[in-house]
Design a protein around this nucleic acid. Structure first.
Length: 923
RNA sequence: GCCCGCUUAGCUCAGCGGCAGAGCACCCGCGUGACAGGCGGGAGGUCGGACGGUCAGCACGUCCAGCGGGUACCA
């Protein structure tokens, strides 16, 4: 029995290769890589090595310029989901690149206490024991939450190791750490003293389930079906019809309002009218807020249960009648008392109908209804005493910082949304009726005195009680860029790392978090000056992760991707690369297993490219100085070509990284590595590597080593593990993580003197690029011909290369034979140099004596001719147009002329070929 | 209601004034020496619709349609 090629054997048996094997990968050493990259073991080993090496740790006393990114702190209750994976991939790529460029990098990790979310989790735990938080009491409950946090919180931090996040573990923070609490109290007191925090009776968004106030952005609006009911108030002469979607609130009406200039009602303004079902009489007031065009031009006014009505009430000094409690249950005495708000609505309507008060009903009536962002319960506007931040001056500053370019938003178009919000921001309700969170540092005395207590102030004694509420969780998040660095103290970290360099996050929290960091950062750090007070210099916003069809991922749809699952099955690098490849600025990322398989394959491609290089003795050094300037004079054309391409890829990659174009930079590196380095360069290098010229072989080994060395450095930020494994094997260096970034862009002064940051990548070489492109065209042409003819790759091709191609490519005969797998000289390929031929195209002459498929060849030639004719005609028409010739730029016209000439030459060539092509057999 | 995106190959998306591109999927071939998680070849689009400006439009302008998102105090 003949030995089978392993691949064929696998195919015959339909044996799939396991995604992960726990074979003897650890035994491997350089130059002896396994044929497949198995990520699992490499990742744990490498990550621990990185942590141990201390390279993740920032140095506040370093003279190097710093580069700081704060993690968007995930909820302590959270675990790593695909959105975090995306965010972290992008951040880590930025940080790793800067680290390689010599910056003093800090990526600071940590978690958020996440008020409501965490409280809910612990309350659920308690419920299992049949307890509520009230059974424990506040102190014990909060103690329980801390306990829970100690045991289960911060799981995500451990999971970040799997992704390869190069965070500074020595600087981990939590929004309720002592230091951060101090920051919260400090800024609260400062805002309070500046009159920017106040307490007031206001209509706020209330969630009757969570039993707490919510800020505007914690409320999601949706268009819900409702019912618009018109009700007749009063009788006879003083009759007014009002419309409402919330019938039950009429129990709390304290007025009817009309527009001051509405002639229909002028005679009624100032009079009172009877409110149905209640027997109360309420005034008719004139208020410019009322739109006379809408409905009957008269509105019912319920100051305690509607934000607009509250304002009207204030203007007219109307009483606010609260008819509902914090659970949404009617408290107004009478037949409806004790009914839930949704039961009360039909009940009140029925009573009105019975009373003959209902004039018209319109259903369904679509209108916007607010829902609690956390639990979905319909939000109730509720009059209550809350704390607010007066955002006016803060928001102005936050808008200006972006307007004048101190903070740049990527992509720029999202800045419009930022302005929309910041320029018209309502005061921020910051008090929450929860137990878990930063307690409001305000104390009240029995006789109504109010005292705001700073972190270093003495607590008020006997007779004083602290405000029971806690702060909105975003209050402390807003301080994150500086509270994590030790503010309010003037620490070395704060001086070294603030302002942070970039904020990377999803556009979905632009308002929640980004805008509020702007508010507080600019305020708290104002002393640093306009340029230095910003919390970050750039904001890079990415989109949401979606499934392969652009649908939102959700558990109920069953289309979620678990990053940990992907990391286990395909590796962290493949997972990261897949995310990076999809991440265009502000754009959503569509994911499916197909993509990650492709990325895994890419890892393996790199792996095998390096395997090839090591087998062939490629040389590279950790300093990146494998190639000496003296080498450049004796390079072969393929070597010159790939170095030229490398140089341009480095420049492009740099520009793309700077613009946060992760998808593009990934694509660029993918194609350069796969299409150019692997598919062409490695093949072109083979003859030299295996040839009999030792000097040429040695030089190519160095070029190969250099190119792969630089390539691995470029890819490392995106795929840290494989690149580390391969780079250390190739160069013998300690870690690619601290190898110099190829562009060598480093601010003077912080590079080590023996650090060769300007690697020997020569300038662009257009001649070599053109020559290799010709070679590629020729090789492709022969391959196509061979495929059309149904010939095997190793089967001799009965062709003669003619024309300029032959002249140009004669020196590459060996490469061409190698690429086309033509091992025997005299197998039908002949190079016939002829310097007088000027046609640009490369022609392949058929050796008509051999038995090729003439009919197929004729069809192919005819098709090519048709295309050439169409092209020539179109170009000719264009050139016949005098406007074009006169007005288009000269280079464009020249290009068109050249194109026409080429097309005509092509036609002539094809005609000749067709004329000399023998008739197919049988004719 | 207002604002903003998107609409290009079967799918997901690049391209944003001068020859329609990528990945995956698809078809054909491959006992190939780094890799079958591979190699070579191929097919596939009048760039949502209608007008308009330009020597030149997939790209710019106006309008329309479909989809997505943001935001809002229309009772």
């Amino acid at each position: 029995m003949l030995p089978l090629h392993p691949a064929i054997f696998r195919r015959l048996c339909d044996v799939t290769t396991p995604d992960q094997t726990d074979t003897d990968q650890t035994e491997r050493h350089s130059g002896d890589l396994a044929p497949q990259y198995v990520p699992g073991e490499v990742e744990t080993r490498r990550y621990q090595g990185w942590v141990d090496s201390g390279y993740f740790t920032a140095d506040a006393s370093s003279p190097a310029p710093s580069y700081t990114i704060m993690i968007p702190p995930p909820n302590v209750t959270g675990s790593l989901h695909i959105g975090h994976a995306l965010d972290h991939t992008l951040i880590d790529a930025l940080v790793r690149r800067r680290r390689m460029q010599g910056y003093n990098t800090l990526w600071l990790p940590g978690t958020d206490h996440a008020g409501i979310a965490t409280q809910n989790v612990v309350e659920r735990e308690l419920a299992k024991e049949g307890l509520s938080r009230h059974d424990l009491g506040r102190t014990e409950f909060v103690e329980r939450v801390w306990q829970w946090k100690g045991e289960y919180g911060g799981k995500i931090l451990g999971q970040m190791r799997r992704l390869g996040d190069s965070v500074d573990w020595t600087r981990e923070r939590f929004t309720m750490d002592d230091g951060l609490s101090r920051a919260v109290q400090t800024i609260f007191k400062r805002l309070f003293d500046d009159g920017l925090i106040y307490r007031a009776q206001r209509i706020i968004n209330w969630c009757p389930r969570c039993m707490t106030a919510l800020s505007d952005i914690e409320v999601d609006h949706s268009d819900d079906d409702g019912e618009l009911v018109s009700i007749r108030y009063g009788d006879g002469d003083t009759e007014v019809v009002v419309a409402t979607t919330r019938v039950e609130t009429m129990l709390g009406d304290t007025a009817v309002a009309v527009h001051p200039e509405d002639p229909r009602y002028t005679r009624l303004v100032g009079k009172t009218i009877e409110l149905p079902l209640t027997g109360r009489r309420i005034p008719i007031v004139a208020d410019p807020h009322v739109d006379p065009e809408f409905g009957t031009g008269a509105v019912k006014v319920t100051p305690a249960h509607d934000p607009d009505d509250f304002e009207i009430g204030r203007r007219h000094d109307l009483p606010s009648l609260v008819i509902m409690n914090e659970r949404g249950v009617i408290t107004a005495s009478g037949p409806f008392e004790g009914l839930d708000r949704f039961e009360a609505r039909p009940a009140v309507l029925a009573a009105l109908r019975e009373d003959g008060r209902v004039v018209a009903e319109k259903r369904p009536y679509v209108h916007a209804v607010g829902h609690c962002g956390r639990c979905g319960t319909t939000v109730e506007p509720r009059l209550s005493l809350q704390w607010f931040v007066k955002v006016g001056p803060l928001a102005k500053a936050a808008g200006d910082a972006v307007r004048d370019g101190r903070v740049r938003i990527y992509p720029a178009q999202l800045a419009a949304r930022y302005f929309d919000w910041v320029d018209d921001m309502h005061d921020w309700c910051i008090s929450r009726q929860l137990w878990w969170g930063h307690r409001i540092p305000v104390w009240y005395s029995a006789d109504g005195e109010v005292r705001c207590v700073g972190p270093d102030d003495e607590r008020p004694g006997e007779g004083w009680t602290q405000d029971a509420d806690v702060l909105d969780t975003w209050f402390s998040s807003a301080l994150w860029p500086f509270s994590t660095l030790g503010w309010p103290d003037d620490t070395a970290d704060l001086r070294a790392f603030y302002p942070t360099s970039v904020l990377v996050t999803g556009y979905d929290i632009l308002f929640f978090w980004v805008a509020r960091m702007m508010l507080f950062g600019l305020y708290a750090m104002a002393g640093a000056g306009a340029d230095e007070s910003v919390p970050f210099r750039k904001v890079s916003l990415h989109g949401l992760v979606r499934d392969a069809h652009g649908k939102k991922m959700s558990k109920s749809r069953g289309n979620t991707v678990d990053p940990l699952d992907w990391i286990t099955r395909f590796g962290a690098d493949a997972t990261r690369f897949t995310l990076a490849r999809g991440a265009s600025p502000g754009g959503d990322v569509a994911l499916s297993e197909e993509w990650v398989v492709g990325s895994r394959n890419f890892c393996n491609k790199l792996w095998n490219a390096l395997r090839f290089a090591l087998i062939n003795g490629a040389k590279a050094s950790p300093g990146g100085d494998t190639l000496q300037p003296s080498d450049l004079g004796s390079l072969s054309v393929p070597d010159r070509w790939i170095l030229s391409r490398l140089g341009s890829v480095i420049a492009d990659a740099d520009a793309l990284f700077d613009e946060f174009e992760f998808a593009k930079v990934s694509d660029l590196l993918y194609h350069f590595a796969w299409d150019e380095v692997c598919d062409w360069y490695l093949e072109l290098a083979k003859p030299a590597l295996n040839g009999d010229d030792p000097a040429a072989a040695e030089l190519t080994r160095r070029v190969l080593g250099h190119v792969l060395d630089q390539l691995l450095r470029l890819i490392h930020p995106l795929m840290p593990f494989v690149t580390e494994e391969l780079w250390t094997a190739l160069t013998g260096g300690e870690s690619v993580m601290i190898a110099a970034w190829p562009s060598g862009l480093v601010t003077a002064g912080e590079a080590e003197s023996d650090d060769t940051r300007s690697a020997t990548t020569p300038a662009a070489d257009p001649a070599a690029e053109a020559e290799i492109e010709s070679l590629m065209r020729l090789v492709t042409a022969v391959r196509r011909f061979r495929a059309d003819q149904g010939l095997r790759p190793t089967q001799p091709v009965p062709a003669v290369f003619d024309g300029i191609g032959a002249t140009l490519l004669a020196p590459h005969e060996r490469s061409i034979r190698s690429l086309l797998r033509l091992t025997e000289p005299g197998d039908g390929v002949a190079f016939t140099p002829n310097a007088s031929v000027e046609a640009e195209s490369i022609t392949v002459e058929l050796d008509t004596s051999s038995g090729i498929d003439l009919a197929a060849e004729r069809r192919r030639l005819e098709k090519d001719r048709a295309l050439a004719v169409a092209d020539a005609e179109a170009t000719e028409r264009k050139l016949a147009n005098s406007s074009f010739v006169d007005r288009a730029p000269a280079e464009i016209v020249a290009k068109s002329r050249a194109r026409l000439a080429a097309a005509q030459a092509e036609i002539a060539r094809l005609d000749e070929r067709l004329a000399t092509l023998p008739q197919a057999a049988g004719q």
